[in-house]
Design a protein around this nucleic acid. Structure first.
Lengths: 70, 70
DNA sequence: GCAGCTATCTATAAAAG
DNA sequence: TCTTTTATAGATAGCTG
């Protein structure tokens, strides 16, 4: 996507890595939600930022996984 | 994607739902892996098929989350 | 149910504001 | 740094085997 092929390796530039993390994290959670809804299946997703912040998605009412216990 | 907009609702047709599950499950796991590699973050993903089969991805050596304990 | 094909829709890298 | 725009790569719906 975007203006160049994606090399599957850690992005060196800190700024670019942060921006990519923000965008892809959002996209991944969206995709996880779509899969669970479209196919009626249970999906759980947890993502830890480099700073240790938690991002998650969980199909079902709460929408939470780890944040329930952490 | 594909030849029509995606309606965010459960796919009624069983065959189509199964095919979509297979394709999107693969795509989601791929995206999860890319995020973890590109941004150097920890990601955990679990997906349960309608029949209860487990599919998962976990950044790190094992690549496993639940299958370690289930 | 998986594999390949093609048209089309999405996600997103980079640039711009 | 967040938002918006733009250009392009990537994902995938519907088909065919």
């Amino acid at each position: 996507m975007g203006r160049g092929k994606v090399q599957l390796k850690r992005i060196d530039d800190k700024i670019r890595r942060q921006v990519t993390f923000s965008k892809r994290r959002t996209g991944l959670i969206k995709k996880a939600r779509e899969l669970s809804v479209l196919c009626g299946v249970d999906v759980g997703l947890v993502i830890f930022s480099p700073k240790g912040r938690l991002y998650e998605f969980c199909s079902g009412e709460s929408g939470r996984l780890l944040s329930t216990i952490l």
